[in-house]
């Protein structure tokens, strides 16, 4: 990935972030610092606030309190559509492909943000996919289905298109919301490998995922969340064996089975 090195030591910094809906504190005083070229994962049971945190980072929900910085620059009062141009791309928890566009066109949508100069020409002339689009399709292994419609894809395939669309924007920071949900084992493996490869090329990634094993295998650093706040932080092994994390997952799991 063509990322320019900046002086800021962190790609993303979130300080004391809070999101309250009326009386509900979905996120309450949570923060993290993501350095370049690392994969951070957020772990937490359903309703722990991790998806809301991701929505706050992408400015889709307003902050009640806190600061957000991208490459050392504050952005928590900017509208969400400004973030793509600053190098932030994300995927969503559910498949959100545009049903009336082909796989290729869906991926092209991601790259459009970086093409302001050629715009007039591409309105009038032929709309050739850019290099970034081709690269994103190739890396996610979508070459065979590039002209298919989203409804023709398996769920795992559709998720890959989402990742390709985010990559086509050539982001500095990639946020992945449960990227492997609904994938089979080998597909998960492939996504995990792709993420690690992107990391080695310098792309910072923040991932929210249910599959703890995948998180342990993929992430450099884990942050565990519950009730909107930090529970534990550290290397993957440390975090999954942390008593508070075990309690949050296992305690809850067993109760729900009883």
């Amino acid at each position: 990935m063509t990322t320019t090195e900046t002086a800021a030591p962190y790609v993303l910094e979130a300080e004391d972030v809070a999101v309250h809906y009326g009386g509900i504190k979905a996120v309450d005083g949570f923060g993290l610092r993501l350095p370049p070229g690392k994969i951070y994962g957020i772990l937490g049971p359903n309703g722990s606030g991790k998806s809301t945190f991701l929505a706050a980072v992408t400015r889709l929900v307003p902050l009640t309190r806190g600061r957000l910085l991208l490459d050392g620059k504050e952005y928590h009062s900017e509208p969400p559509m400004k973030l793509a141009r600053k190098g932030l791309a994300r995927t969503f928890q559910t498949v959100r492909l545009l049903p009336e566009l082909t796989v290729l066109q869906n991926v092209q949508l991601g790259a459009d943000i970086n093409d302001p100069r050629g715009r007039l020409r591409s309105w009038l002339g032929r709309d050739r996919p850019s290099e970034a689009v081709e690269e994103a399709i190739e890396r996610t292994g979508l070459g065979d289905v590039r002209n298919a419609w989203p409804t023709e894809l398996s769920y795992g395939m559709a998720r890959r298109v989402e990742i390709a669309r985010a990559l086509a924007a050539r982001p500095r920071l990639l946020l992945l919301d449960e990227p492997t949900a609904g994938m089979n084992h080998s597909e998960r493996q492939e996504v995990s490998e792709l993420m690690q490869k992107l990391r080695d090329e310098g792309l910072a990634q923040l991932i929210v995922e249910h599959d703890v094993q995948m998180m342990v295998d993929t992430c450099d650093h884990l942050v565990a969340m519950n009730f909107g706040s930090l529970v534990a932080e550290g290397s993957p092994q440390e975090v999954v064996s942390h008593p508070a994390v075990q309690e949050a997952y296992l305690g809850k799991r067993w109760r729900s089975h009883a």
Partner: peptide, 27 residues
């Protein structure tokens, strides 16, 4: 002209999924 190329993609995105559009940098 708005029914082809990048303009069409943007229009499709705004109609089908405004939230997604915002995260793709579309106003």
């Amino acid at each position: 002209l708005t029914e082809r190329g990048p303009l069409r993609r943007r229009i499709e995105a705004v109609r089908e999924d405004p939230e997604l559009s915002m995260s793709m940098g579309i106003g």
